[in-house]
């Protein structure tokens, strides 16, 4: 249990990442863009770009620990790519026959693209989880749904506290011989667990009443409420947000013009570099996805220069 908690802790570390210093709204627009566009573009090149940039960004964020995550994603990719053709028999180029059914090249490519898409999305979610800490998440919710945002913050405050209480109860019971050990029967263990939960519920609810008193005594529910904003939306956020919106706009425009077209029936064909919209689309998409990495690079260079001047 201890190691699990320390793991969660390290996930919550504040990363030396420039993009994370931007306003949560800027952050969320970027991630929504990367994830939603990633789901729409089922084109091998676009998927490839998304994976590559996603992996690079993940590496800058969690360094060596990214390997472990990537290994899992690789396994998933292989499974998805290989399994899809089993269910999907489109295309004319038969590679081999499996249980009397054709296993086609087109379906394999399609499976790989879809597997790649899933990996890319997981990769961007992994980055998201590094950048969007709970307070950023709550900040965004706080603008739209303040009561939900407050209760989220309250639950997050209670979780470590109640986990500790649960362990306290378990050990208190074991010290008077009232808890099962590793050797007791399955049913016994379940019964003991529910007794622990019942004690926890009584205890925690008493605390909940005090929490409510503390809220009311500090004026909760006496009238209009405001939300304290820890983050400011300054000029650099506006600049970045506008750049992102322009890049997303061009990418979507190109997609509408057919830049992400890939056909699998009867033969596999797709748009390629050189076609105007495809080239423009992939460049804008790539730059958009690279924004956080570029920001980190920019900041690193700036500090090199600063230091060398001193």
């Amino acid at each position: 249990m201890v190691s699990k908690q320390s793991e969660i802790k390290t996930m919550r570390e504040i990363y030396k990442d420039e993009f994370s210093t931007y306003n949560p709204v800027t952050n969320i627009v970027f991630f929504l863009g990367a994830i939603i566009l990633g789901m729409f573009f089922i084109h091998p090149v676009f998927v490839g770009v998304s994976i590559i940039v996603g992996v690079i960004y993940l590496f800058t964020l969690i360094k060596k620990r990214a390997f472990k995550e990537l290994l899992l994603m690789l396994v998933m990719f292989i499974v998805l790519a290989a399994i899809n053709p089993v269910f999907n028999r489109m295309g004319a180029t038969v590679l081999f026959w499996l249980f009397g059914k054709p296993y086609t090249f087109e379906a394999l490519i399609y499976g790989m693209t879809l597997g790649g898409m899933a990996v890319a999305i997981l990769c961007w979610f992994a980055c998201y989880n590094c950048i969007m800490t709970s307070d950023k998440f709550i900040y965004i919710f706080g603008r739209i749904i303040p009561s939900v945002s407050l209760i989220l913050s309250m639950i997050l405050r209670l979780i470590p506290n109640l986990s500790r209480k649960t362990k306290q109860i378990s050990s208190a019971r074991s010290c008077i011989g009232m808890a099962g050990s590793a050797s007791s029967s399955r049913m016994e263990k379940i019964r003991n667990g529910t007794l622990v939960l019942s004690t926890l519920t009584s205890w925690a609810l008493e605390g909940g009443i005090i929490m409510a008193d503390s809220m009311r005594s500090r004026g909760y529910g006496t009238g209009k409420r405001t939300t304290f904003a820890k983050y400011r939306f300054d000029k650099r956020n506006w600049v970045l947000l506008i750049i992102m919106v322009i890049l997303i706009g061009i990418t979507i425009f190109c997609a509408v013009k057919g830049s992400t077209k890939a056909e699998y029936v009867p033969y596999f064909t797709m748009t390629w570099f050189g076609e105007f919209y495809m080239t423009l689309g992939i460049v804008c998409y790539g730059i958009f996805l690279l924004i956080p990495v570029l920001l980190t690079i920019k900041e690193t260079i700036k500090w090199r220069i600063f230091r060398s001047k001193i």
């Binding site: 307070d135 405050r157 008493e206 909940g208 929490m211 500090r218």
Partner: peptide, 18 residues
């Protein structure tokens, strides 16, 4: 039990928000 929110800064601001 008196602490309502999960972050120190938020707790300081809680009464003012209300």
């Amino acid at each position: 039990s008196q602490i309502v929110t999960d972050k120190v800064w938020h707790e300081l601001a809680f009464g003012l928000e209300n």
